[in-house]
Design a protein around this nucleic acid. Structure first.
Lengths: 255, 255
DNA sequence: AAGTGGTCTAGACCACCGA
DNA sequence: CGGTGGTCTAGACCACTTA
């Protein structure tokens, strides 16, 4: 792995809510309790939780208060409200595709071709372990994948997974992988990726990488380092993606 | 302007709210009315608007409804609530510094050195006019600026302003410019930049740019194209920033 | 028609801030 | 202390979805 720039300095902690101290507002304490029930699996991902009126009665609180509690979890990205239908546990991440950083992904939400190049179980190198919040040497799965659009390889991915969470995955054959991994994590391993942090840098392609992308060695590249979290906030994946810097394009809005 | 990649495809419209049709909820109509009063300048930027109880009475509505209206404007980034003090009209953009895309800006929120290299009044080239939502040929001010940290020039900026909004600015001398432009826009021209869209791409340095940055010609660069909007949603600035791609670093969170 | 979330009321009391 | 925003109640009615 040649000229690729270093990994992000370290891990950063989940900036979420505290355990809702006793002094916290009632809606906050209820939100925490409700979150616990969701994470415990009382309602499957994608299904509706109990009606707000029923929950209000259950917690012995007025409707408005219950609504505030639910709204807090909506703001956290854990729930989704749909008028007339119910309040749903949010499924796996959508719109987090790596293609959003590149111009070639512009044409609709087309799913790219996907080819698994390698799958191995390894002892986590220190850098990778740090990103996943594991001790160095912990068993991890390393997946190498190529993604392409219109018959051309565009992105190279190195994906690291804690072996303890994905044990049976090590026995899969490359052809058995679905083109989208997150839905596969959810269906086969019960792991719902609900949040991710992408760290963008510039790098230069090494000889092997350049060959795979059909570019000259040393060509500028965008490197995306992603840490993915599940509903409970556990780090469940670390992924490094490389693509041609000339295709890079990202739009950020500030307020 | 040599190898720099093209500008973003075009303009994009303000994705905000509709004019609040009559069928809209009461809080939405009130929010729109209140927004109009704010944009009309009834309360200066940075000052507190009337108390929510007073507003509720004024609009003949319950407190909860008034709070919903205010909350909508808070979500739009127009207002800011402070417990025990009041509800304030948000001032100029903060945290939108270009340094956030680079590693050298990490050390605190230190304001970089700033040097105005050139200030001219021009007829807007078609591309620039499109970004500012003006007709080609409309008079614009073009400002060239260098920004540095620790005595080293790190960023090159080309800033375009509609001359109609900043007329007296053309007569200023370089030394009279403040190191931060947005507060200066607000104080001297009554223009509050409240929102911006940054478009990131990869480019290569031209000969002149490379010299200014002390890098070789053709060196990889990050190009940021920003369109800045004022409180009323008008396009008030278009800015192009170039920096060393090796210093690029950006973190994006997805839910 | 029944069930869901969305809006709205008219109050009460609490928590925070500044003079 | 008086004024601000924050929380909470116990209702009523509206709007949307599904069967």
């Amino acid at each position: 792995m040649p000229n690729r720039s270093a990994l992000p300095a370290a891990a950063d902690t989940h900036p979420d809510d505290s355990p809702a101290s006793l002094a916290a507002p009632r809606w906050a304490r209820i939100a925490t309790a409700l979150k616990g029930r969701i994470l415990a699996g009382e309602w499957a991902s994608g299904t509706a939780i109990a009606a707000e009126s029923a929950l209000a009665e259950h917690y012995g609180v007025a409707l408005g208060t219950m609504r505030a509690a639910i709204q807090a979890l909506v703001d956290q990205g854990l729930l989704e409200r749909v008028h007339g239908r119910g309040t749903f546990v949010r499924g796996a991440l959508t719109g987090a595709t790596m293609a959003r950083f590149f111009r070639f992904g512009d044409a609709g939400s087309e799913i790219p071709e996907s080819r698994i190049v390698s799958l191995r179980t390894l002892a986590a190198p220190a850098e990778i372990a740090a990103q996943l919040g594991l001790a160095a040497g912990t068993p991890v799965l390393r997946l190498l994948r190529q993604r392409g659009w219109e018959g051309k390889v565009r992105l190279l991915e190195t994906i690291w997974l804690p072996a303890a969470l994905f044990s049976e995955l090590a026995t899969l054959k490359p052809a058995e992988f679905a083109p989208l991994l997150y839905p596969m994590y959810a269906e086969r391993y019960g792991i719902t990726v609900s949040r991710a942090i992408d760290d963008l840098r510039f790098a230069r392609l090494g000889a092997r990488e350049a060959t795979q992308l059909g570019l000259p060695e040393g060509h500028p590249a965008l490197a995306v380092n992603r840490v993915a979290f599940d509903l409970a906030g556990r780090r469940v994946e670390f992924r490094q993606t490389l693509g041609n810097a000339d295709d890079f394009h990202y739009r950020a809005e500030v307020r």
